[in-house]
Design a protein around this nucleic acid. Structure first.
Lengths: 204, 204
DNA sequence: GCTTTTTCGATGCGATCGCATCACATCGTG
DNA sequence: CACGATGTGATGCGATCGCATCGAAAAAGC
């Protein structure tokens, strides 16, 4: 057999390059040539890994989705035993809102795909699956908080999860647009959660 | 003088065509030729009205921004005397979230620009100005609700406005992505406002 | 060690892009 | 009424796009 390369590793490397380019100059600035240059591979290699450009973008989206949900899942798996459900919830949501400076790239990519997904069925499917996964995770967290009596039991976990995820998404976009900094976004999120926890007394 | 045309009318018509194209197939599918065809003018006319493509997009964004904020402002101007502050607030937010079926186009365009603005300073400026305007409007509504004793006075109007706008933005994106329908989004928004109104008693 | 097979990376191609150019139509004016 | 200025719309141009093609390099089998 001829020269063998690790295809999976190369695909990941290309996906990273795609994300870097999207974060730097937007999704419409992503061309096969630029991707190849960014990933330090030849253009032919890119075409070998992905049949079409759309396949490449789809893989990049799946890559990012996996990264985001895995990161959130890992945080929960690590910390669920030692932390209160409320702090776990707030940390997880802050992470899902991609507010960390090192998550800025992922936030860029995420919103870019979310926008484009309105015109591409395949992207929409991937995005929808990820969203469902995150929804279930947050809803589970809320139920967990209800079990530990931190969150009032009369609240509907699914509804609150939808609300929290929508808030997180909105904050992500607004922080990216520069409407306010990550600190403000974190404060808004925390406030929302505080009101969730003490649904019978407004925090001041 | 030779044949005179109404430039402003033509610019608006082209802007509408741009928005229609964005809503139909996304922002990267907008070319000068397609815009000209959609607006039923020649390509030369488009180039006469706008020096570059970026100018054209910028004008379209300003057009949409104006439409959105004017619509919200008009609703308030019309109804502020006859309605409770709470219903006014909820209707205004629902409108800002662009949940109506006929606002779907504007929602598409809005998110497309919001995404692209992360890579274009000029677009970001327009977006930021509009956001500030909407924030002031919502904060004013909250203060108004506090005056009428419908909203607890200890809440910070600016903070609550940020939270509401972020929620509205997130819901806009999620509805566009098909994660849930406008009815669910409206319910989430209403629930948030209800909790705002009765900050001392959780809604059931 | 030569052949064969398979992968790699560079180049070519048709299409389309944004923008510039130009002949023509149109209307006020000397 | 003829002239000239001005706006119009079609066409040209260079660049770049995604994708297909092809020669060269590399490793397994005899």
């Amino acid at each position: 057999m001829p020269k063998q390369v690790d295809y999976e590793e190369r695909r990941l490397r290309i996906a990273e390059a795609v994300c870097a380019l999207i974060a730097r100059s937007g999704m419409e600035a992503v061309s096969l040539r630029d991707v190849a240059a960014e990933a330090n591979v030849s253009m032919g290699a890119v075409q070998r890994c992905f049949r079409t450009k759309e396949d490449m973008l789809l893989f990049a989206l799946e890559h990012i989705s996996r990264r985001v949900s895995e990161r959130a899942g890992r945080r929960i798996a690590e910390a669920s035993a030692h932390q209160a459900a409320s702090t776990l919830l707030s940390h997880t949501l802050a992470e899902l809102a991609l507010l960390d400076e090192e998550s800025r790239t992922q936030a860029h990519v995420w919103t870019a795909f979310a926008t484009r997904a309105t015109a591409s069925q395949k992207l929409a499917t991937v995005l929808h699956d990820t969203y469902t996964k995150l929804h279930d995770l947050v809803a589970w967290l809320i139920r967990y908080g209800q079990d530990t009596r931190e969150i009032p039991g009369h609240l509907d976990p699914d509804h609150e999860a939808r609300s929290l995820l929508a808030l997180a998404d909105g904050l992500t976009v607004q922080v990216l647009a520069g409407h306010h900094g990550p600190a403000v976004a974190r404060a808004v999120l925390q406030r929302h959660i505080d009101r969730l926890l003490g649904s019978a007394s407004g925090a001041h």
